[in-house]
Design a protein around this nucleic acid. Structure first.
Lengths: 225, 225
DNA sequence: CGACAAATTGATGGCTGTCAAGACGTGTGG
DNA sequence: CCACACGTCTTGACAGCCATCAATTTGTCG
């Protein structure tokens, strides 16, 4: 990053903030005067239906950029809730436009980021719409794990995760009960284990086979800053 | 649009082209040296699985911008196929970067567009993951119809559509047979009719009720140019 | 007329949702 | 210290939505 860009960041940076678990950082339907980058911690991005059903769109991990939707559109179209203590770097909303004007290359990067999010949502749509329950669970665990590996969060084959089975079920379009039974299936086959706040992969190739991704390669998330 | 912007468009515009039905304009996994805006006609955006299953991500209608993914990322992550004759306005790929540099406001609009696509994919994910078959079909028809109304394509309550029931099924994560039976249900209830290359809505309020969107308001697609 | 795509309808099976109950750990109040 | 509430995980029974298979009909095109 150039000196000018550093100066720009400082000018629009409001500060850093550590928020406790369970905090709703952004709320569907509301505007946001702030943009965030996640420095540490994890959370969930989700949408709610009128009857209380919930669709988990994805997880947020360190390096994620939050609030772009409310930044360029008038309001958020999903909510973001923390699941651990999360440290945020906070920027003013109008930084977005100034960034586009003064550093078009960074604006270009932001469009790249939005296109990447679109790609991931497309992948999730394929997962939910076309795959069986077991395939969905396998693919869901695989994506979480790959993300954790990229971030260096995996130790001894185990990735600590602050999510519950209901979160996984809501992300895959499955019921909690059935998700539980599918997790048991993967566990009893010695492929993967989701328990005690962590995900352990025993047989990565086996998991990829179950997920129907034996030959697929993942697309890495490039930090924006 | 300013005179400078018009000059810019002319400089990077390669030309216009009319392609016949069934043409694959963009292909998943491949780069594209061109960007397109759709002047007329309709098509499908979709992803293919290894075993031949297909997930329809959405339809393209006049005003759509195609190729942004291959423009900012290295390659397309879904394919686009025409279903009618489609007239395209073609631009050079490097127009994208020059647009960001010379007209940051337009670059901002492009990010807005990418965020809008992300929003629509999120909506579709909720539809497929959380709703029953009948609700999915109702919502699918509703979205097509609203889009048609916005574009002024609806005459006498009927929207001509060049898609087949398999397309609808692949977009909703349902089998062709079951989709057909759900369409019959809506038809026999006098709510909507999908037949003979067109969609007719007889009871919009009823359809919205079935779709679980009695109170929801749609987000309009704003043409980029 | 024959081939083909698309739409339609019925029969059958199974994957998955729902309901219910219990186990386990944690925190709280008496 | 114990009782209790609560959240989460787990397991079994049952029902139902939906996929699959199969056959028929209709319309289009050569």
């Amino acid at each position: 990053m150039s000196a000018e860009e550093l100066a720009f960041m400082e000018r629009f940076k409001i500060g850093e903030r550590a928020v406790p678990p369970g905090t709703e950082i952004l709320t569907e339907g509301e505007a946001s005067g702030e943009l965030y980058t996640v420095l540490s911690g994890m959370g969930l991005r989700f949408k709610l239906l009128e009857d209380g059903r919930r669709q988990v769109l994805g997880v947020t991990m360190p390096g994620d950029f939050l609030g772009l939707q409310a930044g360029v559109m008038d309001r958020m179209h999903h909510s973001v809730e923390t699941r651990t203590e999360v440290t945020l770097c906070i920027f003013r909303r109008d930084a977005l436009w100034h960034l586009f004007r003064d550093f078009p290359e960074r604006g270009y990067d932001l469009t790249w980021l939005a296109a990447l999010e679109e790609h991931f949502l497309g992948e999730r749509l394929v997962t939910v719409a076309q795959l069986s329950g077991l395939e969905r669970v396998a693919r869901g665990l695989l994506r979480l794990f790959e993300r954790g590996v990229d971030l260096g969060l995996v130790r001894n084959g185990r990735l600590p995760l602050p999510f519950i089975q209901q979160d996984l079920a809501d992300g895959l379009g499955l019921s909690l009960v059935h998700t539980n039974k599918l997790l048991r299936q993967l566990r009893s086959q010695g492929i993967a284990r989701w328990a005690d706040g962590g995900l352990t992969i025993y047989d990565l190739a086996g998991l990829r086979a179950v997920a129907g991704m034996a030959n697929a390669t993942a697309l890495a998330v490039r930090p924006l800053i």
